[in-house]
Design a binder for these strands. Structure first.
Lengths: 193, 193
DNA sequence: CCTTTCATGTAATGGGTTACATGATTCG
DNA sequence: CGAATCATGTAACCCATTACATGAAAGG
């Protein structure tokens, strides 16, 4: 019945996950990619609109026309039963951890090439950024934890809370890591007086 | 003197970082992308060879021919002084944290769509994988910490140690996160007896 | 002899970013 | 009346993965 349902990209699963929580227009999906989800998945509208068309071709989402502002008709998308089934199957399926690309770590890995005071400046900048992110996520976590359904594994609020909890823990770990590096860089023999 | 030196990709910086530590053939660079660096940056040879050619065109690396096994001449690349300068400049430069794409977090964010026992199975798999990774990195960290130069910020060993330390801390945080999720999933009302 | 490792390249395809294009409504 | 927001789409370009292509040396 749905012949192309087998090949859904990661972005497709991200969109299915967003629409399973709440029907949205393509434009709204692009904006929703900022908070909660955007911490671990992002996309621009130039990628979202074609992907929605593909998902619809595979019968995983459907749109209805609503009144809206654009020059073209405004479409609100929602997951179909087949789309929800595809999402469920993907969540529980086997997986290999995708390739990791972390520019921050890559910089640190070449930190030895610069003078110690430049290294300290960089790590201080990393630390500030991370501290801001941690505060931000902690605040959001408190907000979400107060919402109804936060303890119910069948509620999207529960899953949001778990994601934010992961983000908070990673950010806290990386903040401590920056402090360790500042400590080790200060203990450097070249900067003793 | 080097007119195209301004536009170096992230992969280019990764390769410069590798070559600044030790001259290598393209083939060796591909293999070196596994351990230490591969934890936060990966590339296949199909991407590496063209990038080396671009870097050489910009005067940032240079090759010499050595005896080797292939049908074509074997090339050993090394960074030029201009290449080392470009690497240093990049390490200390302003930066925006690139887009994050984490399939693991994306799955957890849609965890509410599956039955609690399927969710537990998934998180247990995540936990096992993470525990293995943590053990692996901890072992490597101990190895690197014993090498000479591990305390010297001007030594690549120091930078390797810091990178591994970051990896260990993040992996430990994520392991604790898995335990938290298993705890919350067990406390679920649907599975009370 | 067969498989693995060394070794370099290109081509096809897919994923992702940026820029171009269009136009209505709302707020200052 | 100008800027921001809502809203959808396409095109050009870059980055990354996978597959095709080739062939020597070493080890079992």
């Amino acid at each position: 019945m749905s012949p192309a349902a087998s090949t859904v990209s990661s972005l497709g699963h991200a969109l299915l996950g967003l629409l399973a929580r709440r029907p949205s227009t393509g434009y709204e999906l692009a904006r929703r990619m900022d908070r909660p989800v955007g911490y671990f998945w992002t996309a621009h509208h130039g990628q979202i609109y074609p992907e929605l068309a593909r998902l619809e071709g595979a019968g995983l989402v459907a749109h209805e026309l609503i009144e809206g502002a654009g020059p073209r008709p405004t479409k609100r998308y929602a997951v179909t039963p087949a789309g929800l089934a595809a999402l469920r199957e993907w969540v529980a399926s086997e997986f290999d951890p995708g390739p990791v690309r972390d520019l921050e770590q890559l910089r640190v890995w070449s930190l030895w090439t610069v003078a110690p005071d430049e290294a300290r400046t960089l790590v201080r900048a990393l630390r500030e950024r991370r501290a801001g992110q941690l505060a931000d996520w902690e605040r959001q976590r408190e907000e979400v934890a107060a919402e109804p359904g936060a303890d119910d594994p069948a509620s999207p609020v529960f899953a949001s809370l778990m994601s934010l909890e992961g983000g908070v823990r990673v950010a806290a770990a990386l903040l401590g890591w920056c402090d360790l590096m500042l400590d080790r860089l200060a203990a450097d023999p070249d900067s003793r007086d």
